[in-house]
């Protein structure tokens, strides 16, 4: 259970929960970032914020503060992007 913002560049994480009330989380869900998806933190911007994450074959920029409700399970090295059953 780690906030997405604490992922290190290059690390993979499996999304365990998000807050559908938040506009950011709604956007990401529309892009296909759903619970159970594996994502990768690619890098932080040179000034530390925002960060670039990769999921479902796309790269998306996200502000750290706006991503605070996204919780992931850090995966060792798991590039498989398969969703688990819907909650």
């Amino acid at each position: 259970m780690t906030p997405l913002s604490q992922l290190l560049p290059g690390q993979y994480g499996k999304l365990t929960s998000l807050n559908p009330e938040r506009a950011v989380d709604q956007r990401l869900m529309a892009l296909g970032l759903l619970p159970g998806m594996v994502l990768k933190l690619i890098r932080r911007a040179p000034l530390g914020d925002p960060m670039a994450i990769e999921f479902g074959g796309q790269v998306v920029s996200l502000r750290l503060a706006e991503a605070e409700s996204l919780i992931v399970d850090v995966a060792a090295d798991c590039p498989v992007q398969r969703p688990t059953k819907t909650p």
Partner: peptide
């Protein structure tokens, strides 16, 4: 105006 989150596709 409601601000939009800065979710930007690269």
């Amino acid at each position: 105006v409601k601000p939009q989150p800065f979710v930007l596709e690269l």
